[in-house]
């Protein structure tokens, strides 16, 4: 059995805000975070919307765990799933060039056309000098980030990792995606969910939430392979799973069949965040550990899949 990984802190943020007052409160939180980090040289107006979501989620996860900010250490890394979240920025940047030639190229916007900028912004603001990795796996990008962090912690490559996903589903992405095929992402919005993870021996102020196992698969049996690998990783039998929580899933009927083939008979609930692509899986994990449907110690299987990147599964459990 692989060692469980402790969830030391969770931060999740979603947009659009329900009311203008909530939007104002979110903007105020960002200003407070930047001031608290002595990052006054980074005006809030230069922080893009998707960065804001990730920064607020990271801050909350670190705060819950009692990690000093800025951290100034290289044993804490960032692993972030990002893909479609920057497509709107890239499209608008390139449209500027098409309209105005070289003068349309903004040196302030250009860095945001590279996917790693969001993870790097977090590493810079919070002074996290460990591994900073960005994964592009579409709907399972956030899941893959969690999986990579779990593996790095178990293998001793880091003491702690801030891991999860972020997205900003913009009109440009939705329009383009609709031309290619059916998409899980139905309306503009955004979200971020980051966990501060630590090895089983790590200190922290959080409760007993844990990631017990992780698995992934690709190809025609992707979901089956991912769930089976995940259960093996957690050393759990299928009948111990109390609930299945589904994040974004690209082909639900075949995913349901795969779960049955593995021997999972638990009820399946769809995450309300399943339209948030790269962020959907971490948000579903957060829902599972923060609001355990059958009690804190009942393992919950979270599944997700992407038509291009395969499937991912994690077993998690809430704290006391």
């Amino acid at each position: 059995m692989s060692a469980p990984i402790r969830i030391l802190g969770v931060g999740s943020v979603g947009v659009p805000d329900a009311t203008p007052a909530e939007a104002d409160a979110r903007a105020g939180r960002l200003r407070a975070v930047l001031t608290g980090l002595s990052a006054d040289g980074v005006p809030a107006r230069l922080i893009h919307g998707i960065e804001e979501l990730a920064i607020l989620a990271a801050h909350e996860a670190l705060r819950q765990a009692g990690v000093p900010m800025p951290y100034r250490g290289d044993d804490l890394g960032v692993v972030l799933g990002v893909e479609e979240g920057i497509d709107g920025i890239k499209a608008r940047y390139y449209q500027g060039i098409l309209a105005d030639g070289p003068l349309g190229a903004s040196p302030l916007t250009f860095p945001l056309t590279t996917p790693n900028t969001i993870a790097s912004r977090i590493s810079i603001l919070f002074d996290l000098r460990g591994e900073t990795l960005t994964l592009g796996g579409g709907n399972v990008a956030g899941a893959q980030a969690l999986g990579l962090a779990v593996r790095a912690l178990r293998d001793g490559h880091a003491a702690m990792a801030l891991a999860g996903g972020v997205t900003s589903v913009e009109p440009e992405f939705l329009e383009a995606a609709s031309l290619v095929g059916p998409s899980q992402c139905g309306s503009p919005g955004g979200g971020a969910c980051l966990f501060l993870l630590g090895g089983s021996g790590s200190a922290g102020s959080a409760g007993g939430e844990q990631v017990l196992g992780y698995g992934e698969g690709f190809g025609p049996n992707a979901m089956h392979d991912a769930v089976r690998a995940c259960l093996e990783d957690a050393a759990l039998s299928p009948d111990t799973i109390g609930v299945v929580r589904a994040a974004a899933v690209c082909d639900w009927p075949s995913a349901a069949r795969a779960l049955r083939r593995v021997g999972i008979s638990a009820n399946v609930t769809r995450s309300p965040s399943s339209g948030l692509c790269s962020a959907s899986f971490p948000l579903a994990v957060a829902e599972a550990v923060e609001q355990p449907a059958l009690g804190a110690h009942v393992p919950v299987l979270v599944v997700g899949s992407d038509c291009l990147a395969g499937a991912a599964a994690a077993v998690v459990q809430g704290g006391p």
């Binding site: 893909e83 900073t132 994964l135 592009g136 579409g138 190809g219 990147a309």
Partner: peptide, 26 residues
């Protein structure tokens, strides 16, 4: 266009069903 297209296409060509990841660290 998507970042993950190459990894998926190559894995499919080879018949790989293990980890299929796209890493973007500049």
């Amino acid at each position: 266009y998507p970042l993950r297209v190459a990894a998926g296409a190559l894995a499919e060509t080879a018949g790989f069903t293990g980890p299929v990841l796209t890493v973007s660290t500049a």
